[in-house]
Design a protein around this nucleic acid. Sequence first.
DNA 1: TACCAGGCTCCTT
DNA 2: AAGGAGCATGGT
Length: 276
Amino acid sequence: MSDKTNSIIITDLKDFDIRHILDCGQIFRYYAIDEGKYVVHTRDKRCIVQQSANEAIITFGEGEKEYFWKFFDLDNDYSAIKNALKNKPLLSQAIDYGHGIRILNQDKWETLISFIISANNHIPRIKGIIHRLCDALGEDKGDYHAFPTPQAMASVDEEFYAKLGAGYRAKYLACTARKVADGFDLESISALDGIQANKKLCTLMGVGSKVADCILLFAYHKQDVFPVDTWIKKVYTDITGKVSDDAKTIRKELLDIYGDDMAGYAQQYLFFNKRG
DNA sequence: TACCAGGCTCCTT
DNA sequence: AAGGAGCATGGT
């Protein structure tokens, strides 16, 4: 007999702000339907989150409590994380600004495809491409579509993704979908450390070091990673006074500063704070 | 209208 | 190993 509970209620909001969680750039399939009320999609599932001054209510389908408990990382103590990080460079202010951020435990395949699309792209456009991708290839769930399976994505060609508006990433999507559908094992990457996991993901077409780090942080919850994009380059300048375009060096230096046990969390607070 | 976006691939040195 | 051109598209 499955759990018939269909909601989670959070009354301690010091470590939970749904706007911070959704707007910090880790997820693209969500939209606001009212003040403090959002619809969030993940894999073939959907939940509604409504947050007021006193509580946040997460509502979902029957039997999905365990899934969403893990998805929102509710076993993790973010007060302890923030306490451990708050004295590191720029974090006092950044943690204050994004105090309700939590790193989601997202689906590996969905995160892989989403961040291939994210490369050199604007967030509103990324959302649009992913939405059209789901509508076109994802299972029809009645009033919404699931994220498509590797098999569904491998069944169409590059031209198809170009018509979705993916631009030059169309080729990457077709190629990587084929590789995963053909047996590339995303699960086995969990066992690798940040460096090795990054290297393995970079063998997929369309995945470079930055996209790999995003996947490792948002879907594998790894902490010995540090996605470096244009915003983090600005943060790097704020911290060190140096201007650099060398993402590899910046990654290494920031990992060193923030520590490879919590650098991923630090990166999200810094990114959200800088991008606004 | 230009410039830019959660960068990557591929070709030269 | 390191550097740089080229890249599709649309938001601002």
